[in-house]
Amino acid sequence: MTHAVKHALSLFVVLYALWLLLSGHWVDPLLLTLGAVSAALAVFVAWRMEGLDHEGVPVSVTLNALAYWPWLLWQIVLANLAVARCILDPGRVAPRMAWVPASQCSDLGTVIYANSITLTPGTISVHVERGRILVHALEGGGIDDLEAGEMDRRCARVERPLAGLAGTPKERG
């Protein structure tokens, strides 16, 4: 089974599950068939747009991403409280903008890291290059925390299934 078939099948399964959950139709065979047809149509369009690769359908990193989310959500809560404190006391605001190293080897991993940085209030990824991210932080401590590298390591762990095929989506099909 080639990678393209694997990605097409998993995208179809995910889309059909989404269709079932959103529609709530479980019994009518006509509607179930129409749902399957529309899911298949979406997969066909994705294939025509050459979106059926490890970035468009990131099946291999899904489990690792699910394991990463609880930690990320907790960081978001902590960062929210820090920014809320800044809003109540604007004297604490001391913005910094600096480059932060990003050790991920794939584009997908870098995007996960940059999005995690932006998702935690108090830090925004402004520009992404290979191996480093320009971060704007509301308090200087935000940059120090990122430089300590905890989030960087965890994002590198999420993309580990992609190691070895970094930047070569075309060869992988």
């Binding site: 978001i76 929210n80 920014v83 809320a84 809003i87 605001v93 209030p121 925004i124």
Partner: peptide, 25 residues
């Protein structure tokens, strides 16, 4: 709080930090 921060903070970047409060928590 997010809305108050958008008004209070000094420039566009710091205001975006405040706006992300409403997006997340």
């Amino acid at each position: 709080l997010s809305g108050i921060g958008v008004v209070r903070f000094p420039d566009v970047f710091t205001r975006m930090h405040a706006a992300s409060l409403a997006d997340t928590l």
